[in-house]
Structures are given as C-alpha cells and as structure tokens.
Write a protein that binds this DNA or RNA. Structure first.
Lengths: 389, 389
DNA sequence: TTGTATGCGTTATCAC
DNA sequence: GTGATAACGCATACAA
C-alpha cells in the first residue's frame, strides 16, 4: 500500500489502520477475526478483488485463475469467515423472515400450537435461504413492548417485526390496525389463514369450502338425505368457509339447506346431549358434519352424546369432522373428514412472503385439503348402497 | 448542510444522498425501512442525536426533554426500527438470540423435537427482552452450508449465527471445530446439554448423575440387590452421566457395580428378548434401570420383552427409566423414573447466554430433575417392605 | 447540549 | 483484470 499524499483535505488523513490488528482483543473482550483486507494483503491484491473472488460473481472471466487461487489460499490459511452483519448491511437485506403469532410460538399447551405449520415454514425458509425471527413479544408481553434497559425505544408490539425483510402472521386476534399500518407502509406481510380484514392483506389458507363440500357429497353418496352442520359460535373466516361449503354441498346434492340444517352453539358440551341427538334423529337427520376447533369441543360433545345415547356410528348415524379430531380422541375408528395440509400451508406462506419481498405480485390460491374417508360415516339407515367411487 | 468548499480532494464530494429516499421502492422492489437519518430530518436534528436519544445512553441529562420528545415522536410516526445488521456492525447489540439445532428445529417427527426446551427458551427470552433467530441452516442442508450461488464462499454452517448477539445450540452432532472458532472469537455461545468438547464451551444441562442415583436408591429401598443398567451404545455425556450416577448409586447402596451390571447394546430390539430377560432373572437380577433415548428403543425393547416372557412388573421384576418413556408408550402404568425439567433448562440456558453477552462470568450448575415414583418399580421378589420415603 | 466526522466489514461501481 | 472508492445504517469520540 504505497502512500501517495497527493490529496489535500482538511479531513484527517488517517489511513484506515487495520490489517495489522491481528487477534487483539477489543475493549469488549472480543477478538477480531481476519477481514478481507488482511486476506488481500497476504495475497498481494486489493480488498475489492478478494470480495470479487470470494463472492464468485464474475466466475470464469475477469479474474485470473492465478489470483483466484492465491486469494482462496490466503483466505483459507487465515481462516477467513465473512461477517454476516457487514455482509447484510452492504447487501441491503438481512435474509430474515419474521414469524409472529399472537400467542406464544411455543405454548405450554402443545395442542394449541402451530407446530405443524412451522414445520413447513422452517423447511421452506431454509430452502430459500432465510432464517426465521420469532418475535417473542406475542407471549408474556415481554420484549415487544420495550427492552428493559432502553425503555424509551419506540418499538411497539408489531413494529419490531420491521427488523425482518418481511413477516408471517399466524393465529387469530391479529390487531387489524397495526397490520394495516405495516401493509400501507409497503412492509411485506403474509397471513397464515384466510383473512379479509385489513384491505390488501395477503393470506395463504386452506380451501375449506371445497373440502367441506366433498364431505357433504360423501354423505349424499351414502344415501343420507338430511345432514346437519354442528358448529361453534365464532365468526372467523374458516368457520364461514366451512358453512359455505356445507350449504353449497347440500345444494349440489339436491338437499335443502334451510336454517335448521345448521346448529350453532358456544357450549357444545351443554347443548349437544344424548337427548338433543335423539331429537334430531327423530326429525330425520341421519348425518352430522362437525366443525373442527382449537379445543375440539364440538367433536368431543357429539361423540360423547352418541355414546351416551347408546348409539353407534356409522350404524345408527353418520359422523364427519371438517378437519381432524382433537389428538386425545384420535384413536378408535378413523374419523371421516379431511386433512388440512398444514406443513404445505406453512411452506406456501413462506413462498408467498418471499415473492412479496422480491416485489413480485403473485398470489397464492387456497390450498386443497385431502379427503379422509374414515369409518364414522356409512350408509344411511335403510340404505345399503356403498358410495360410488 | 452548508457546503464549504475548502477542501480539495480528488475524491468526489458527493454528499451521502439519503434521507430523502422516502418510501421509494428500490430496484429490487423492496421498500426501505426508515433510518435514523430520516427520523433526524423529521425531528430537525442530526442523525447522531437520534442515535443518542434512541439508545438512551445519556438518560436524564445531555439531551433536552424537548429534543428528546421530538425525536421519539418522529421515530414513532415513521415506524422506525433499527437495522439489526447495522447495529451489530457498529459494535452494539441487536437484542437477538440465535437458536441453532443440528437437526431441524421443527422436525416432521415431533417426538424428536426440542419443543419442551423451546417453551422455556421463548419465555425467558421474552422476559429478558430478546427475540429469537432460528437458524435454519440445520435443516435440509439448505442455507447453512454455502450459498448456492456462491459455492466458494468460505462460510461454515455456523457462520450466520454471528448476526445475533449470541447463540444457543441444541442437539447432538455439533461440529466442534466451528463451535471452537466461535468461542475463541469471543462470540457468546451456550450449549443446551452437557458437553465438554470444545474447551471453554458453556453449557446448561440436567443433573443426570444425581437423578439416576435417586432411582437406584429407590430400587435399593424396595429391597433389590441386583440392579442392571440397560443402555444404548452412544458415548455422549448424558449417557455417561447416567452410567456414572448408576455406579455411584450402587456404591451408595452397598451393591456391587461390576461390568455385568451394565448392558450396552446398539440394537435393543434384537438383543433384549424374553429369553435374554429370563437369563438375567435367573442370574439374580431383579430390577432394571433403562436409559432414555431419542427413539425410546431401550424402553420399548424391555417392556416388550417383559410382556413376551409372560411376566409383569412390578410383580416379577422392577423397571425404571432414566427420564421419560417415549410418548407412544406413555399410557398404562406410570413409569418409575424422573422428569427432566426441559423448559427450565431452556430458560436457564437463555439466562446463561444473556449473562455471557453482558460480559458476566457466571456459570450455571446442572439443573435438578424431579424423581417420579411411578408404579413400575416395587418390592423385590420375596420382599414386602415398602420404601421408607 | 448538539453536530461532525469517522469506523465497522462488506458489496458494488467505477476508472484505469 | 484490477484497484480505488463510495455506500450500507448505526454508534461514538470529539469539536463546537
């Protein structure tokens, strides 16, 4: 590095005095690792050349195999490792995808967890070269609010997600306001699950409409003529989709929907009893399709009622769940219904988010669920016909 | 910014032209998040002042409450969030803790997952004001090894972890070399699980020695005189600890250890048969303590053998597992053994890591396990004595 | 009390 | 083909 003092500047002409610092511990006790400058010095080239060689941009040409080898060798011998912080700062991206759930990401109650989704999220993120940032602010109101030592730092619950290149949101109870703000700021956001709330929000969800329709069709094939939907009292999109699929399915099969075809309750354990069940059967209902929920209360209630009434399915009546039964009830006969491809949904959400970050305007269509024939649905009483197909 | 052209330099005097880029999408389509410069502009102060205010270093004094408020307000309204990479580069902290597991963090096979640990990790991280970065390099060989487009870059699997303030490692199969490098570079690293490999590595683990000792003592109280340890063939610290606790427990109870007291096998399903079991009983062994493993193969094998031999426990022999049985076998009678406080371990690891980052030299002692009496261990044949406490 | 200047380790864009 | 040099966003010693 020959010094030619040809420039006169009032700024201190203090050459960046590194490249000889070696392993000197810094004040914080950290030892400094070799940088490209030192590799350059050893190889007798400029730092920029080192960067070029190592990043391998101009592969074949532009750089002599000679130089190339010398640089690589120097890097190796010095044990050079790039500093990810510097690298991302310069590249204006940080390769981080945020994951924000509105409950803890790892709840103590594993049943309520988003684990199956996260499997897909992690895999796809890895495939695309992203790391994941789990915002712990969701749980315990901890980090989100403000760091303990810097109480004034203006990071609101959702604002810290901006530290990532984009963010995935999972779960209900998302504050529309803050989401809206993020979106209008052009921050890439994808919601895992159907959601229409903030205008312009991208989401990736399952096609509950079709899946539910299939289940109803199955009942029709078994010869059922009166099917009832048992659902909770929440009005979120997934519930609405299932009901819509139910109604459409009835129509498609030539059955009448009517208000009595849907039974809503916020407390299935209380309302869905053996007596209730007998009344419905007396009215001519021979099959029930049941909403899936976090707690599985609906499925729990109706299977309990069936047993309490001394009935059995599919002998006396047919049952299907619009999703999967709660884990603790998932042993005996396999429930008729469908599987939500949760991992696939997670992966799709990550792809959508990556596309958004890349500025692409793609949109992800609802992901199909897989019909599960199971054995809780069978021929309607008085019918023997097996379903065709 | 008054331009005083007093300096003559051949370098282009091009003022850093930011702070007015606004929400302009960059060529890649990304919208840039606001920086301190823009906050400064809005507040009518310098970038440095913004940094001072936001980092809250000189709390009460040095900065006018006026200025302070203006800056905070500007930051808030712009949705400012510090760039983690830039913060790291500038030798500050970014309040991110890395989590690196050597298999996927969310494996498809839930049984093998570190979920229980992560529960504690997340909670404690939130409490301390950290967010978590899940490095996906572990899974799918994806991003970690080397960026696909730049094959020559000397990035090890672990290189990206330096983006965080420190990193937690979970799982076996950790590359000692890279860990060593991180440690010698002064990067804060904590290993979840006992590990002696790289000199100076901090770890947080469970006290398997004492816990195993307690189990052996329980057997002694029940009057057993010959107890056998059934273990896998891996030589990791947890296994070693259990064996040590076993031997010490025997000694403490006045039983002889001897080489025959330990049975090692890499294929329990093949080696631990009904016949094998009968032979051991014939030799006078009346109780078995079984290692816990990822697969639960040892516990599976011996319970199967007991059944196949037409025996039952604790009637004919006593059984205990040094941990918990695999989930799918965890229904019938509760297994005697101990619970590993996984969430607590995760939390302790986070605390230790935070201490390391803060430059404190604390060390975390092994965390105690909880004895589980269960009902697979009982009086030795010919004895009626109940254990005294 | 606030602003100026400079460094952190890369990447990327130019001249040569 | 290679070598200066300017960002990247933030922190911080020092000047004003």
């Amino acid at each position: 590095m020959n010094d030619r003092r040809t420039m006169r500047s009032h700024t201190v002409d203090q050459p960046r005095n590194r490249a000889k610092r070696g392993r000197t511990p810094t004040p914080t006790g950290k030892t400094s690792r070799p940088r490209q400058a030192e590799v350059a010095e050893l190889a007798g080239v400029s730092q920029a050349t080192v960067s070029l060689v190592l990043s391998g941009r101009k592969q074949g040409q532009a750089i002599t195999a000679q130089t190339r080898e010398r640089v690589l060798e120097s890097a190796r011998s010095l044990g050079y490792v790039p500093d990810p912080a510097a690298r991302r700062l310069a590249a204006a991206r940080n390769d981080l995808l945020g994951v924000f759930s509105f409950t803890a990401t790892f709840p103590t109650d594993v049943e309520h967890s988003y684990y199956p989704f996260l499997v897909g999220v992690e895999q796809e993120a890895a495939r695309l070269g992203y790391d994941l940032v789990l915002f712990t602010g969701s749980s315990s109101g901890g980090a989100g609010a403000s760091a303990p030592d810097r109480p004034d730092y203006p990071v609101g619950a959702l604002s810290r997600v901006r530290l990532a290149d984009g963010c995935l949101f999972i779960g209900r109870h998302a504050p529309s306001g803050e989401l809206k703000r993020l979106i209008s700021d052009g921050f890439p956001v994808v919601y895992l699950g159907r959601r229409d709330e903030p205008e312009g929000l991208r989401w990736v969800g399952a096609d509950y409409v079709s899946a539910t329709g299939e289940v109803v069709a199955e009942m029709a094939r078994w010869g059922h003529e009166r099917v009832m939907l048992l659902r909770g009292n929440e009005d979120d999109p997934p519930s609405a989709d299932r009901q819509r699929g139910f109604v459409e399915g009835l129509d498609a099969s030539g059955m009448t929907a009517g208000p009595q075809a849907v039974f809503r309750t916020s407390d299935p354990a209380r309302d869905v009893t053996a007596e209730w069940l007998r009344d419905r059967l007396a009215e001519g209902v021979t099959a029930f399709v049941v909403e899936e929920s976090d707690t599985g209360a609906e499925w729990r209630a109706i299977t309990t009622a069936v047993r309490a009434a001394g009935l059995s399915c599919p002998g006396d009546l047919s049952l299907a769940i619009l999703g999967s039964p709660p884990a603790d009830l998932d042993h005996g006969p396999e429930a008729t219904g469908f599987d939500v491809p949760r991992a696939e949904l997670g992966a799709a959400a990550v792809r959508q988010l990556a596309a958004l970050i890349a500025g692409e305007e793609t949109d992800t269509p609802p992901v199909a669920c897989t019909f599960r024939r199971g054995s809780t649905a069978g021929p309607a009483p008085g019918r023997r016909a097996a379903p065709s197909v």
